[in-house]
Design a protein around this nucleic acid. Sequence first.
DNA 1: GTCTATAATCAGATAGAC
DNA 2: GTCTATCTGATTATAGAC
Lengths: 206, 206
Amino acid sequence: MNQAKPVTRIQRRNRETIREAALDVFSQHGFRGATLDQIAQAAGLSKPNLLYYFPSKEAIHGELLSHLMTDWLEPLRALDEAGDPVEEILAYALRKLDMAQELPRESRLFANEIVQGAPRIMDMITGELKELVDEKAKVIRAWSDAGRLASVDPHHLIFSIWATTQHYADFDIQVRGILQTGNTDHFDDARRFLTHLYRSALTPTR
Amino acid sequence: MNQAKPVTRIQRRNRETIREAALDVFSQHGFRGATLDQIAQAAGLSKPNLLYYFPSKEAIHGELLSHLMTDWLEPLRALDEAGDPVEEILAYALRKLDMAQELPRESRLFANEIVQGAPRIMDMITGELKELVDEKAKVIRAWSDAGRLASVDPHHLIFSIWATTQHYADFDIQVRGILQTGNTDHFDDARRFLTHLYRSALTPTR
DNA sequence: GTCTATAATCAGATAGAC
DNA sequence: GTCTATCTGATTATAGAC
């Protein structure tokens, strides 16, 4: 069995090294803009060796995308019908902001894919993602109907949370260029701003 | 003089045809993903003829980007210190949303560039754009200090307006995939949502 | 001004030695 | 498992006829 599938430590480590390098390169240049030469160099391997571990450029990219999805949807999945409406949505937004700060490459990998028409993940969007969003939209609408949340369009609320949080990863270079902050201080300001924005808009008025 | 620079009607028309075609292709595939073949076909010209009007692929792309900037900053320039604070910012956000609806290709061209690290427009961001944003941020801060606007971080307010509006152009494929609306009905819902969001967050409480 | 043909380069993938 | 060398196709750009 070990002979048939000799998944050694070295193999695991090399595949992981390649994934790391590929995430760097794909997230910065997009699928078409990335080259195997760049990925090989970032991984410290030769180009043919890359293709010993993965059958093709597309295979590396595809693996990154599918691995991404699980983590990516987790915060929305965590939105709890039993919790306090305003606090649940606020926690969701701040969790997404944390992810933009901690996993900016993953966000950009996704953004590159969507901006260019989602050629490789359209199924996931109209399937798994839509299903989850529609389910949570119902929860939000029920909260509004019960007067526990201001009346807002649930889908557009979710879109706005995605937009405002992922912006700090996807448009990071622009944010830094304008704020001129070398490090990541501005995430604290972003947290404060988004907290105010969504608390104001979501707290029921009566 | 006409001999030296014979900018005929045909020349103008062809250059414009090429810009149109290039905007289609670049905005959908990014700089690296776009090919001259695609642009030539979209323009109904041969590839060498394309390069008769523009010296290189990069020249076409560069012209699109620089043309874009003027229009792109106009709405923020229009933010009027003399107007009503909440209404001015609301009008700005809705104007940006209109642009996302009417000029989605321009938005995606810009998004592609920024997500990939703004290799060709970093100067503009740290220069012209930062200058304008800082200027308007001062106006917004003054409004807050005068108690005519809720106290918010002006820069992050502007970022959030960019994010929430451009999202409908840049992530259009995802928005449609989730809402399953064939046409553009959802922009009316977006307008209502953003109006509520920013009116709630910006109206001073006392 | 526009085209066909082609040069020059780059990038994904494979062959085969070690 | 890893490498050097190489194949193949795609892509930017140019040459030169018309």
